[in-house]
C-alpha cells in the first residue's frame, strides 16, 4: 500500500493522505504534512488524535494502511538505512532502572557507529546529573535528560519526541526545553525535531512550526508566526458572521447578545466591518481546531 513519494531535499518528512487503521478503526487518516529540515515542529491534538500513531509510522514501528510517506528521503517500510539518522524518545522514556547513565552510554556506543560519547557525558555534566547513579534513583526530569542525551548522542538528523515533558514539573520542563533548543542551535540547521505535547504554551517558544491533529486528520500544518498572523478572534453583536471567500470560520460561539468567532484569514488584509478583530495566542487556535473536530464528530453521530 505504501508508496514512495518524491520529497524535496529540503524536507525531513513528507506525507500525503497517510493513514493507519487497526481492524476497522482509523487511528490516523488523510494525514498530509511537510516538515522542513532544521525546523522544530510541535505535534498537538487531543488524546487519540493519532499523534503516537504518526510518530510510530515515521520511525517504522508501524506500517501504513494508506497514503504516501517519506522520511529523510526514504520509505520506512522499504529500508531501515535511515534509522541510524533518527533519534526517538518514546513517551515512557525507556531506560534500564538498574543501569547508570554511563552504562546506558556504553550500550549506545556498542550499538551505534555514529555515537558521540563525549557529547552525551558533557551534556549531563553541565546539568550536574550524576553519571554513576542508577537511573532508577534519578528524578523524572533527570531521567528525561538522560533519555534526551541518549537520543542526541547518535547525532540524528531527525529527532522524534513523544510527550517528553508531560510528567515533568515546570522547572524540569524548562530545563528540558532549553537542552533541546541548545541541541538545535549547535546542530546549525542539521537537526529537525518533531515533538508531540499537550503543553501548548511551552511549545510556542521552542517550536517554529505546528501540526494540529484532531479526529485522526491534519487540521493545520504551518509556521507558528503565520498561524498567529492569520488567525483572529472576531467579536460582534449576535448575528450571522459575514461570509467571505478569504475567511474560514474555525469556531463560533453565540450568546443572545454577542458572537465570538475564531477565524482563519486566507487574505491577511481582509477587513470585516462591524466586528472587533483581536489577536489570539496559539493555545486558543489549537483549542478552536480541537473543538471544531469534536463538534463535527458529534454531528456525524447525529447528536446535535
Amino acid at each position: 500500500m505504501e508508496q514512495t513519494v518524491k520529497s524535496k531535499a529540503s524536507e525531513a518528512v513528507h506525507t500525503r493522505g497517510l493513514g493507519k487503521c487497526y481492524g476497522s478503526f482509523w487511528a490516523l487518516k488523510d494525514c498530509t504534512i511537510s516538515v522542513p529540515r532544521g525546523s522544530v515542529t510541535a505535534l498537538v491534538g487531543p488524546n487519540g488524535a493519532g499523534k503516537t500513531s504518526l510518530l510510530k509510522l515515521l520511525v517504522g514501528l508501524n506500517s501504513s494502511s494508506a497514503g504516501e510517506i517519506a522520511v529523510l528521503g526514504q520509505t520506512p517500510s522499504e529500508t531501515t538505512n535511515y534509522l541510524s539518522s533518527i533519534g526517538y524518545l518514546a513517551q515512557e522514556i525507556p531506560l534500564y532502572n538498574q543501569f547508570t547513565a554511563l552504562e546506558h552510554f556504553a550500550i549506545g556506543k556498542h550499538m551505534d557507529t555514529n555515537w558521540n560519547n563525549e557529547l552525551a557525558v558533557k551534556r549531563l555534566q553541565e546539568l550536574r546529573i550524576p553519571l554513576d547513579r542508577r537511573v532508577g534513583k534519578l528524578s523524572g526530569g533527570q531521567r528525561a535528560q538522560v533519555g534526551l542525551a541518549m537520543a542526541l548522542a547518535k547525532r540524528p538528523q531527525l529527532l522524534l519526541l513523544d510527550e517528553p515533558v508531560a510528567a515533568l514539573d515546570p522547572l524540569a520542563r524548562m530545563d528540558f526545553l532549553a537542552s533541546l533548543a541548545q541541541a538545535v542551535t549547535d546542530a546549525d540547521g542539521e537537526l529537525t525535531v518533531i515533538m508531540s505535547s499537550h503543553l501548548l504554551a511551552d511549545l510556542e517558544r521552542v517550536c517554529d512550526r505546528v501540526i494540529i491533529l484532531a479526529a485522526g486528520e491534519t487540521q493545520l500544518c504551518d509556521d507558528v508566526d503565520h498561524v498567529l498572523k492569520s488567525h483572529k478572534l472576531l467579536v460582534g453583536h449576535s448575528g450571522e458572521l459575514p461570509k467571505h471567500e478569504g475567511m474560514s470560520v474555525i469556531q463560533e460561539v453565540r450568546s443572545s447578545t454577542a458572537t465570538h468567532a475564531i477565524v482563519r484569514l486566507n487574505n491577511l488584509k481582509l477587513a470585516i466591518p462591524g466586528w472587533h478583530v483581536r489577536d489570539v495566542d496559539i493555545e486558543e487556535v489549537v483549542l478552536a481546531y480541537m473543538g471544531q473536530s469534536r463538534d463535527m464528530a458529534a454531528d456525524e453521530r447525529g447528536e446535535r
Binding site: S39, V40, A181, V184, T185, D186, V206, D225
Partner: peptide, 18 residues
Amino acid sequence: AVREVVTMIAINPNTVVK
C-alpha cells in the same frame, strides 16, 4: 549571542535569528 538567548529562555534559535 543566539546560543546565550536560547539557553536563557529556552527558545528556538530560529526565532532569535529571525
